[in-house]
Design a protein around this nucleic acid. Sequence first.
DNA 1: CTAGGGTTAG
Length: 493
Amino acid sequence: MHVDCLMKCISHEFSYGTLLLKGMLRMIFLLKLPRFIGKCTFKVVKYGLEFIAMIRTELMIMYVKFGEPGLADFLFKTMVERDLVAWNALIASCVQNGHANKALALVREMDVARTKPDAVTVVSALSACGQLGSSEIGEELYCIARKEGIDCNIIVENARLDMQVKCGNVDMAIKLFEEMPQRNLISWSTMIVGYAINGESEKALSLFDKMQNEGLHPNYITFLGVLSACSHAGLVREGWRYFNRMNNLDNKNMKPRKEHYACMVDLLGRSGHLQEAYNFIKSMPIEPDSGVWGALLGACAIHQDVELGQHVADILFELAPDIASYHVLMSNMYASAGRWDFVKKVRWRMRKKGVRKLAAYSSVELNGNIHVFYGGDRLHPQTQFIYKKLDDLFKEMKSLGYIPKTNSVYHDVESEEKEATLSTHSEKIAIAFSLINVQPELPIRVMKNLRICDDCHTFSKHVSIISKREIVMRDKIRFHHFKNGVCSCKDYW
DNA sequence: CTAGGGTTAG
């Protein structure tokens, strides 16, 4: 495709041209050609097209997708006619690409710029709150929207429901679900997933039946919801039943996709059927992708099957060499097996390929502010009190029989040092911070970007006894509700 | 004259 030709086309035949350019920009993204976007912008500027609102909006979306929200922001700030659609486009693309904080900041800026948000803005804002785990801000924004007379249609209501689900407020979510003026397939799917990730799999499955009794047909996402419900609870037989039901449906559109296979591999593998999971992948009628193999690698890590893990990792390093978590999983497996020579090898390979491990963090919402903690963090103004609190907690739980699980530390260091690393994992700091600051009658809520480790899981159970408080923790894929020393995941995660 | 923006999985 000749870019100049396209630009001329836009100047002459406006509506076709802009649509073509839009299509081209989306294609650049799908084909992963970040360098081409710069060239394209250059041509757009050359032909003076960057002042057309629609084209500039599309460019902004592309820049956010390519991980350059700053450049998108520049295009936005220098836009002549910054209308509501441009605001919404930027906000939505920020949310969809993991810049939830930036999205919320933009929503606040709208007020200053005297642009009145609409339902589309509210949906993105609620989605951002869900990502951040800030139900207080989310509900506040929803109330403001209602007061301002914004039409809260079913999409807004679904976004609100999802926001509560992602904050771990199952009771609130079911209340909203039951009181909704209308419910569509997305409302049901959201609620099913809500139960699943909060550890109430039976309720998720019965809701799935109820939905069908009301005459709604599940789509592929609904099926993913029930399959993940099975996998979170280790319900292998039920999982097979739903998977086979999908396969037996007449609708060709409803044949299991890669994601469903990945879910089944996760279910089989984590419940200990590693070989069955491997054979299942081998028998797939479609090409397994990194998600499918990644699920098996995760299961190998849980069950310490280094041999199979090594085989799977070799496939993954070919298929998706730049995904850090697969390297980290393999490195951790070697470490647990005491194979430090192999650990070094994996680390060396990561460095060579420029793959960087994602730093773990935990965050807590307090009075509408989000406090972020990293492992061993001493940056918070309350650091002294936090560590004092942690110290007291450890003393008390050690007298109750807590033993640090130092095999959760994947570095080749002495055991005292291992214990030190372990005792300052970000979620422990976040819990100590919450114990100091959150009103005693309220549950403690911690959001994590990665999965919780064994030791922090045990720690949280102890804290729920010692402090007589409920702890709600969201990790990368599910919730843990700790109460009286028991976790809602039944120690299966 | 319009065109560009929104919810469910991982």
